[in-house]
């Protein structure tokens, strides 16, 4: 039985530093500690405007995380069903799932956001935050579906044969044998999608959702301190993303150890 670790390369969230990748790990340290130092320097040496700015955007960080967590949760559920649909032998289900993936992946996220918020908003009025979460989940559900599909297809076909030979039907086989194994393979790419989604939530600032970027824009338009505002916003995004990518990297290594025993 081939037991090599399957690597699914669909990352667009962040470069994931692992212990083996010394270059990237050093780069991660430089970026992370550099960003933290810059942040501390700006806030301590120039509290006006940076300290005020930091206090002002604090709510925005919370909103960014709220949108991210809600969307990733929904996207995971949607992605699980989409992934199962993509490997389904039922032609109708397979076609529905595949079409969803094709359509969503072919439309820029910003256009999808506009469409759900403004175009559909003409018919159904939904709260800003909810519209943002729906749009983000709808988009990322398709990407997540491809991650799930790849995870399922990476499982050796002998596993399915062993399971059905014992008398399990296809649904039981998926539930007890294939998915538990696939979940291990897809956790790192899911972590990566999580980071990508967090960055993409900056797009919802256009929909009157007061996320990190929008709070920054509000501050800048009142104070005209554009350089200072966007410098700080960029540094804050960078720090959040770097922390998450390190977490994903650590998780990936733990999973690797677990699979190897």
């Amino acid at each position: 039985m081939p037991e090599q670790k399957v690597v699914i390369d669909v990352g667009d969230g962040a470069a994931i530093p692992t212990k083996k990748d010394h270059g990237l790990l050093s780069a991660w340290r430089i970026a992370f500690f550099g960003a933290v130092l810059v942040l501390l320097y700006l806030v301590i040496v120039h509290p006006d405007p940076y300290w005020n700015l930091l206090k002002f955007i604090r709510d925005g960080v919370v909103v960014t995380f709220e949108v991210t967590f809600a969307s990733i949760g929904l996207a995971l559920v949607l992605g699980l069903f989409t992934g199962l649909g993509r490997v389904s032998h039922n032609r109708f289900i397979n076609l529905a799932a595949s079409t969803y993936v094709e359509v969503v992946r072919g439309i820029p996220l910003l256009v999808q956001l506009f469409y759900i918020y403004y175009a559909l908003g003409q018919f159904v009025r939904v709260p800003d935050m909810l519209a943002a979460i729906i749009a983000m989940s709808f988009c990322y559900g398709a990407y997540m579906g491809e991650v799930v599909r790849a995870g399922i297809e990476a499982i050796d076909k002998g596993q399915r044969e062993a399971s059905v030979s014992l008398g399990f039907n296809e649904v039981q086989t998926m539930r007890y044998v294939i998915l538990p194994q696939a979940l291990r393979t897809i956790l790192p790419p899911v972590g990566n999608e999580f980071i990508a989604l967090l960055k993409d939530t900056s797009l919802v600032s256009i929909l009157a959702v007061s996320d990190l970027l929008r709070r920054g824009r509000e501050f800048a338009s009142e104070s005209f301190a554009y350089f200072e505002t966007y410098t700080l916003i960029a540094v804050v995004y960078l720090i959040i993303t770097l922390i998450l990518s390190k977490l994903v990297g650590t998780m990936e290594e733990r999973m690797g150890n677990h699979v190897r025993h």
Partner: peptide, 11 residues
Amino acid sequence: MVFQSFNLFPH
């Protein structure tokens, strides 16, 4: 059924 490649459930 017993397979050439064992096909035990690794998880």
